[in-house]
Amino acid sequence: MIVVEELSVSYGAVQALREVSFRAETGVITAVLGANGAGKTTLLRTISGLKEPAKGTITLDEHSLARQKPENIARLGVGHVPEGRGVISEFTVEENLRLGAMMAKVNLSDGLEEQYQRFPVLGERRKQHAAKLSGGERQMLAMARALIAQPSVLLLDEPSLGLAPQVTAQLMHTIRDLCASKGLTVILVEQNASTALRIADHAVILYLGRVVANDAASIIVADEDLRQHYLGKVE
């Protein structure tokens, strides 16, 4: 379980997060929603150590994550799939996956086999360069790379960005499966609220760096005022 308390983050004079507090329970998908500039990506970057908070705490089980180096947080079991995916085009699918297992103490061949079973298309293309993959396949590769290190927490930043609706649906289905089968704590940042709320158990809505709603996904979907003010049209 990840507990974020009173988290504030600034970029110079601009305050991106203002005293954000929420809990992401184990085995639950927590969607973080909001418009552009709400602070969603900053929140994930702060949890994974890429951005240092001005104040506040982040706790993973009994470990404090705030102000830790990203590599140490990764070793504590936090997998982060950043926006833009971050796969290396000149590496093959398998080499990209090996990168994910590089610093983790996991059995590489078992890990590779597990990811190829979960994402069969990656298994078929294991010797191909990542540059030749489609957008959806690249997203799968980025997720598989994070999963190969056997994280207990998975941070997903806009996984549906630039993907066709069908591919997005398939991806969301995989995320749901992962959460159920492996008991992962998933924090899913999405601009596409409908997509995220369809699979999320819990949702946090950010507006200009503040938490304006923090409740079960079903309650947020049912609250018409909230949807209209902060999420636009939710199907």
């Binding site: 990203p70 590599e71 290190a149």
Partner: peptide, 23 residues
Amino acid sequence: SRTGRAMRLVRDNEVAAELVGVS
């Protein structure tokens, strides 16, 4: 090697490198 791949990851994508645990 692992070190060589880590270096190339640092070259191409510093954020991704940090996220997989590379210092």
